[in-house]
Design a binder for these strands. Structure first.
Length: 567
RNA sequence: CCGCCCGUAGCUCAGCUGGAUAGAGCAUCGGAUUUCUAAUCCGACGGUCGCAGGUUCAAGUCCUGCCGGGCGGACCA
């Protein structure tokens, strides 16, 4: 595909005298106008002529330079149309040659990208909110890996902070009442909720105990508090792992904030050594108002000497730099923490670290319930496990109804149900807030994951039947794919889409693109039969089916959805 | 009060980082199955692109100001 735009670019450059990299090749709004377009407005000044006249003259000259590409002036535009057989042969040839790696490239070779994702909090349920970080982060990581980068996915577990003092206090008092073993997360959540209700009801001793517990924890003492904290961590991680297995997500590193405990002192010393720290109201801070007016200072140490979230993230980012010398360090964290990451980068900038701007906050919108914001303190959360279960059960019902003979219906139902949930989180621009609506999450029609999976299954089915019937061996009649030109052009854009999704860290670009491809395919094969045609025709159509199926399979994999062969 | 983000069809969203008559899905209504899975396809309905200015040959897209919603704003994470 790129060979077409390259040819157009260099021909235009030769005729206009402009640099080929400066020429913007667009896609016409109306596909019937052509495959590519070049607006001539920009040339009007230098050539001192009206754009339509330039277009007409250029189109004539270009015709001779371009082999297999027709150039036609339409008003101020030059529209280009690739000869249909050439288009089909080229695109399908590219896909076939690259196989499962179509669209991949090696532009990131030798560079490492660190991605901080998921990062659930110990003793709290994995909510549909954490799903966003996990699913978006994992998709970004796979997409970047397809561009040749070495990726390091880090699950930065929230296992530190005052809330553990609270939990230990709650367990000490009421732990005997609850069943921590069989359903630890829910038991811990109710303990956490009880702590807050009773503390608000006037039991001041609770907060004191929590404070003492956390101080003991931070002191490093191997006492009862640390033992309980350790047990909480183990129970929670085991629960989280169940979800990660269902989502098919793996991490290069799973590290708690506690890991950075030994680095906190050196981290603060290192920042102090650059002379940017100061004491303010009893706390140790870095002033950031010189970078951006109104930016609040970053607190490194509280009045009582203990560290904060920001200190631990600074320790972590130094550690990551030393370990990986990353080209980018991405934090897939909700948009409510924007200020935190601006401050993190701000401190690095003030320290004079030349890699400070490699730190990027990949923010995503908040997940909200129709009844309001989610709150684990109030117990108002939707458990991810429940969402996945319900989606799987709905999928199973539909299979039972539409495809009762499907083998491994339970396994496929899991793939489709999880696929629906995952895709629902990836399909819109990540910065947009989402309201959690059950009917949308477990929907399998229209712009959904199952729609893409279904398209894939249909195409697979055609391939299977072709193999059974022994069809498709003839020399393909590429010109016969003229009626699938839009599918081919979309397929041809896949490498660009992947590249863009990677640099923007925006999986929705890929999700939107694959939906469009599926729509065009469904539209096409609703009206065109593949099997049982003239051998050259069937062969050509089968080639299109294969290239499409393979590319959808690849896209689903990058997004983190399974691609069942039947459903 | 200050800062950042969002505002496109009844609802959920695309709109290729300024270009040709603004596109999908859901919902509603009407249609398509002797033949590769109807989780599909086709058609109809539906828009002063929040409002007002400005820059430009050209603005949904860039700038300014308002309005509405979200999120932040030193010892939580």
């Amino acid at each position: 595909m790129q060979q077409f735009t390259d040819a157009i670019r260099s021909a235009l450059a030769a005729q206009s005298g402009l640099k080929s990299s400066a020429l913007k090749i667009e896609t016409p709004r109306d596909p019937s106008l052509g495959d590519f377009a070049f607006p001539c407005f920009g040339l009007a000044k230098s050539m001192k002529q009206a754009p339509p006249k330039i277009a007409a003259e250029l189109a004539d000259k270009l015709g001779a330079d371009l082999e297999g590409i027709e150039a036609v002036a339409t008003g101020p535009y030059i529209n280009f149309r690739v000869e249909r057989a050439l288009l089909a042969r080229t695109i399908i040839g590219e896909v076939a040659a690259a196989g499962a790696n179509y669209g991949h490239n090696t532009s990131g070779a030798g560079q490492t990208i660190v991605i901080d994702l998921s990062s659930p909090n110990i003793a709290k349920p994995m909510s549909v909110g954490h799903l966003r970080s996990t699913v978006i982060g994992a998709a970004i990581e796979r997409i970047l890996a397809s561009q040749g980068y070495a990726t390091v996915g880090i699950n930065h577990i929230g296992d530190w902070g005052i809330q553990f003092g609270k939990l230990v206090a709650a367990i000490d008092r009421w732990g005997a009442d609850s069943d921590l073993e069989s359903d630890p997360i829910r038991a811990l959540l109710s303990l956490y909720v009880r702590f807050h209700t009773e503390a608000e009801a006037g039991d001041t001793s609770l907060e004191e105990e929590a404070q003492q517990n956390f101080q003991e924890l931070e002191s490093g003492e191997e006492g009862p508090v640390r033992a309980t904290w350790r047990r909480l961590t183990e129970l929670s991680l085991a629960e989280f792992q169940k979800i990660y297995d269902r989502l098919g997500v793996n991490f290069s590193q799973v590290r708690g904030e506690a890991f950075y405990e030994p680095y906190l002192g050196p981290t603060i010393e290192r920042i102090e050594a650059t002379g940017i720290t100061e004491m303010s109201q009893g706390a140790e801070i870095v002033d950031l108002s010189t970078l951006e007016k109104n930016m609040p200072p970053c607190l490194l140490r509280k009045t009582d000497g203990t560290t904060l979230y920001a200190t631990r993230d600074l320790a972590a980012v130094f550690h990551r730099w030393e370990q990986f010398e990353f080209a980018r360090c991405l934090y897939v964290v909700g948009s409510d923490q924007k200020l935190h990451f601006r401050q993190l980068r701000g401190v690095c900038q003030r320290m004079g670290l030349d890699w400070a701007d490699r730190i990027e906050h990949i923010a995503f919108g908040m997940m909200r319930l129709p009844e309001g914001k989610m709150s684990s303190r109030k117990g108002r959360v939707v458990f991810l496990e429940d969402v996945l279960d319900r989606a799987r059960d709905e999928a199973f019902k539909i299979i039972a109804e539409k495809n009762p003979d499907l083998k491994d219906a339970r396994g496929v139902a899991e793939q489709v149900g999880v696929g629906a949930v995952v895709f629902n989180d990836l399909k819109r621009e990540r910065i947009k807030d989402i309201e959690f609506v059950w009917s949308e999450v477990v929907s399998f029609e229209g712009d959904t994951g199952p729609y893409v999976q279904y398209t894939h299954a249909r195409l697979t089915s055609i391939e299977r039947k072709a193999a059974e019937a022994g069809e498709g061996g003839a020399e393909p009649d590429w010109a016969a794919l003229a009626d699938a030109d839009q599918v081919l052009l979309t397929l041809g854009r896949y490498p660009d889409v992947l590249r863009s999704a990677g640099t923007h860290a925006e999986p929705s670009e890929l999700a939107t693109w694959v939906l469009g491809l599926c729509r065009e395919l469904n539209n096409w094969y609703a009206g065109h039969r593949v099997l049982g045609q003239a051998p050259e025709l069937s062969a050509a159509r089968l080639q299109l089916v294969k290239a499409s199926r393979s590319t959808i399979h690849s896209a689903l994999g990058l997004l983190g959805l399974a691609a069942p062969d039947q459903m």
